[in-house]
């Protein structure tokens, strides 16, 4: 008999792959049918939402270099002032924007493999020990063949100074790998587009976090 007793905690339920038919549950229209009145989607903004309108687009690439076409992504971000729409966020100096939940869900297109989000550029959120974090968007990725959801972040190419001071980006020991998290800004038909491709493995593997 062991003489060491430990406090009892429940064990987290184990993850399983989202599988090839994830769209049925999380994006039924993409699976090819209509069932719910209100669908969760990739447009985070309403007309009254404050902030710079941006499009995020990209592809997810597997270890053979192929673009994957059955991926589901979710993003979670702060509003333009740098505040999350959640009761835990008590940053007193940053106002809530009632017209911005800060969450979206997108699927890669079955033909092109491209995903997009229509959102706003987030402001800077205060991080641990009072240090400001560079503006970023939290990303969660699932698909057939991914056994447990992958967490990563999108930073912005036009925030060089903030990125260089970000406590999390700079904690990545391999400096070369940091750039896998930086989305490139461009303009297309008068719209601001950030391109964020994700490499699941290989020499350019995107940084994934254990949060």
């Amino acid at each position: 008999m062991s003489d060491i007793s430990t406090p009892v905690y429940l064990k987290e339920t184990a993850s399983q792959t989202a599988g090839p038919y994830v769209h049925i549950g999380l994006a039924p229209k993409q699976a090819g049918f209509d069932i719910f009145e209100n669908n969760f989607g990739n447009v985070l903004v309403k007309p009254e939402t404050k902030g710079e309108r941006i499009t995020i687009e990209g592809r997810i690439i597997d270890g053979s270099g192929a673009v994957i076409k059955d991926v589901l992504l979710e993003i979670w971000q702060a509003n333009a002032a740098g505040r999350y729409n959640h009761p835990a966020d008590q940053q007193a100096d940053k106002p809530l924007d009632e017209s911005f939940r800060g969450w979206g869900r997108a699927c890669t297109d079955f033909e092109s493999g491209i995903y997009t989000f229509e959102t706003i550029k987030p402001g800077s959120v205060t991080g641990r020990n009072g240090k400001p974090m560079a503006p970023h968007i939290n990303v969660w990725i699932v698909a057939r063949g991914i056994n447990i959801g992958l967490s990563t972040r999108i930073y912005f190419s036009d925030e060089e100074k903030a990125n260089a001071a970000d406590p999390d980006l700079t904690s990545i020991e391999w400096v070369e790998r940091r750039k896998t998290l930086v989305a490139q800004r461009s303009e297309k038909d008068g719209k601001v587009v950030y391109t964020f491709d994700v490499y699941l493995q290989g020499p350019d593997e995107t940084v994934f976090f254990d949060v």
């Binding site: 053979s64 991914i146 790998r177 290989g202 994934f208 254990d210």
Partner: peptide, 9 residues
């Protein structure tokens, strides 16, 4: 081909 090979940060 869909699994990360590098350690999670």
């Amino acid at each position: 081909l869909r699994s990360n090979q590098k350690a999670l940060i």
